[in-house]
Design a protein around this nucleic acid. Structure first.
Length: 249
DNA sequence: AAAGAAACCAACCGCGAGGGT
DNA sequence: TACCCTCGCGGTTGGTTTCTT
C-alpha cells in the first residue's frame, strides 16, 4: 500500500511503513548522527536505531550519494571529464569502478553526467549503425533476388537447350546472357567471352558464324564463373557514407 | 512573458554477489 | 548444500530547473 502524506518530515509517500521520496533536512540530520555514532554499514538497523522511517537501501543511497563528508560538490571539471571518457572506454558502464578513480564523485553522479552529456552522441552512433545494417540487408536481399532470378533464367535456358528449343550459336547465347546480366569487371567479361577457338572481338563482330551450337558444359562453366564472381563481389560490399546522406552531414 | 523542450539530478527498483547460519 | 539477509551496482523514473522559441 502506498499513500501520500504530510507529516513532521514534510511531503512524501509511505509504502509498507517506509517513507519514500525526497529527503528532508531533519531526516538528513538523523542519518548523519546515526553514521557518526555507529559508522557506515548495517543500514537496515537505521530505522530502529535512528528513528528514521526509511529502509536501509534508501539510507545507504542517501549517505553514499549525498551526505558523505568527502563528497565533492559542483560541476565536473574538464580533467574529470577526460578521465571519465577514458575510463568509460576501458570499463564501459561500470560506474562504481570509474568513480573510484574520481575522489569525491559518486557512481550516480558520473552515470548521470554521462547520460546527460554523452548519451546523445551514442544514440546517433547507434542510429548510424542501424542504418548501415538496414542498408546492408537491403543490398544483400537485392543481390540474392538477382542471383535467384539469374539462376532461374539460366536453368530455363539450359532446359530449353536440352529440349532443343533454344537453338542459337554459343557466341550469340553468350551475348544474350551479357545483355541480361552484364558482368561487373573485366575478368568476368573475359570469362564470358573466352573460347579456345576465337578471340572475343570475333564473337562480337561475327554474330554467331563461328563456334557452332551451344555447348552445355561451357554454359555450366559460365554459370559457375558468374556465381563465383558474384560471391566475390558480395564479399567486397562496403558501406560508404553515400548510403546514408542524412547521417554524415 | 509564457509555453514547451531539454537538461539535470535525486531517488527508486530489480538483480546478483557474498557472507552467515 | 540450501536458504536468508545485507549490500552494492547499474538501469530507470520522475520532479525540478534552465534554456529556447
Amino acid at each position: 500500500m502506498m499513500m501520500m502524506m504530510a507529516g513532521p518530515f514534510g511531503w512524501g509517500t509511505v509504502d509498507e511503513g517506509w517513507r519514500k521520496g525526497p529527503w528532508t533536512p531533519e531526516e538528513d540530520k538523523l542519518l548523519i548522527e546515526y553514521v557518526r555514532v555507529h559508522g557506515e554499514g548495517r543500514w537496515n538497523s537505521v530505522a530502529s536505531l535512528a528513528g528514521l522511517k526509511r529502509n536501509g537501501k534508501s539510507c545507504r543511497l542517501r549517505w553514499v550519494n549525498y551526505l558523505r563528508p568527502d563528497l565533492k560538490r559542483g560541476h565536473i571539471t574538464p580533467q574529470e571529464e577526460k578521465i571519465i571518457i577514458e575510463l568509460h572506454a576501458r570499463w564501459g558502464n561500470r560506474w562504481s569502478t570509474i568513480a573510484r578513480s574520481l575522489p569525491g564523485r559518486t557512481d550516480n553522479e558520473i552515470k548521470n553526467y554521462w547520460r546527460t552529456h554523452f548519451k546523445k552522441s551514442e544514440k546517433s552512433t547507434q542510429k548510424i549503425d542501424k542504418a548501415k545494417t538496414r542498408a546492408l540487408k537491403r543490398q544483400e536481399q537485392k543481390k540474392q533476388q538477382q542471383q535467384q532470378q539469374q539462376q532461374l533464367d539460366m536453368k530455363t535456358c539450359i532446359s530449353q537447350l536440352e529440349e532443343g528449343e533454344y537453338k542459337v550459336s554459343l557466341p550469340q547465347a553468350r551475348l544474350e546472357m551479357f545483355s541480361m546480366y552484364p558482368p561487373a569487371d573485366d575478368q568476368c567479361m573475359s570469362t564470358m567471352f573466352h573460347t579456345d577457338t576465337s578471340p572475343p572481338d570475333a564473337a562480337l563482330s561475327d554474330g554467331g558464324l563461328w563456334g557452332g551450337l551451344w555447348n552445355l558444359d561451357d554454359l555450366r562453366a559460365d554459370i559457375d564463373n558468374m556465381c563465383a564472381t558474384s560471391k566475390a563481389m558480395e564479399e567486397e560490399i562496403q558501406v560508404t557514407p553515400s548510403f546514408y546522406p542524412g547521417f554524415f552531414n
